[in-house]
Design a protein around this nucleic acid. Sequence first.
DNA 1: CTTGTGACGCATC
DNA 2: AGATGCGCCACAA
Length: 104
Amino acid sequence: MASDERDAAMRKAVLQIPRGKVATYGQVAAAAGYPLYRRQVVQVLRKAGGALPWQRVVGSGGAIKLPGEFGREQRFMLEMEGVRFRGKRVDMAVHQHTFRKRAR
DNA sequence: CTTGTGACGCATC
DNA sequence: AGATGCGCCACAA
């Protein structure tokens, strides 16, 4: 199925985000080759249930989109990796990861 | 098949 | 800056 392929591509993209950096849902979707599937990135992260560095994926502008306890958890984990925050959002100017074309 | 939901993103107020 | 609306898309009921 094509959905498996999308899942795999997205998981890969997420795994490419190095420690101390973050990427947005939209970025991940685009890097995976499916720019319009930002919402599905979420599904993939949930489905992976901890097998992925889910904390490195944030909303546009570096906003933490996960509500409640998990949101605070995510922020904590990121700060733990050395990510700096500016108010409620990640300092994207410094921590936003830039994906590269593969097989170069 | 139709509807509701969601860790989105962007325009708009 | 926070709230709302709309477009986008898969998935469950």
